[in-house]
């Protein structure tokens, strides 16, 4: 299913960050979003996920809008992974339990996030540690693995490898190579490696 965005308008307060932005993501395709800090990259991802309201424009997945699909189902298909990876109560394994019981995800076939994260060098034992004891890089891989394992139609990734070493970064890129992504990165080399198309903001 293609994600199509047409004529998007993004505002923060009374500042217009983008106006008339078009974007299209085909199956298995990665679109890299680049631009200076504060240019609206994060707002764009959050708006595509329906977490922030858009000031204008229209987003569809296949031929359906978020309203037609219902916002929770939309987000299960168009899944955002935050740049700031929050610690949560309990352990990542507890989080998996909560996520697995969400109404919008119950009927989905999911892959095993533990196996996915393990291919990125995350120790199996990390899933049973309290979040407070995990490093930034470990948290980042947990959140990313949970999102990837849900097989969303499109992943919205905000600096997904910012806390990872080069080896883990390459492993993540390999996993995501055949997924549809909108990918924000400051790293020009990474952009060159993963991008099918590039959108410049600001």
């Amino acid at each position: 299913m293609r994600l199509r965005a047409h004529g998007l308008v993004g505002r923060a307060g009374d500042r217009t960050l983008f106006d008339g932005l078009d974007l299209e993501v085909g199956e298995g395709e990665t679109v890299v979003v680049r631009g200076p800090s504060g240019c609206g990259k994060t707002l764009l991802l959050r708006a595509l996920a329906g977490l922030d309201p858009l000031a204008g424009g229209r987003v569809t997945l296949g031929d359906r809008t978020p309203e037609q699909l219902g916002m929770p189902s939309w987000r299960a298909e168009v899944t955002w992974v935050s740049q700031d990876v929050p610690g949560l109560p309990g352990t990542p394994r507890d989080f998996l339990g909560v996520v697995g019981r969400l109404a919008a995800r119950r009927a989905r076939t999911v892959d095993d996030p533990v196996a996915i994260a393990s291919s990125w060098g995350l120790a199996m034992t990390a899933w049973d540690q309290p979040w407070s004891r995990l490093s930034g890089g470990e948290r980042q891989r947990v959140h990313l693995a949970v999102a990837v394992a849900g097989r969303p139609a499109v992943l919205l990734l905000d600096e997904p490898t910012s806390a990872l070493d080069p080896e883990a970064t390459r492993a993540v890129e390999a996993t995501l190579a055949d997924r549809a992504c909108v990918w924000v990165t400051h790293d020009a080399d990474q952009a060159w490696r993963v991008a099918a198309h590039t959108v410049e903001l600001g």
């Binding site: 899944t79 935050s82 610690g87 996520v99």
Partner: peptide, 22 residues
């Protein structure tokens, strides 16, 4: 202050009720 924790669930498809349960 815990906006990130709530939105981590919303982003995966939680309804507002599911996300705000904790």
């Amino acid at each position: 202050e815990g906006r990130g924790r709530v939105e981590a669930l919303l982003a995966l498809g939680a309804t507002r009720w599911e996300a705000s349960r904790p």
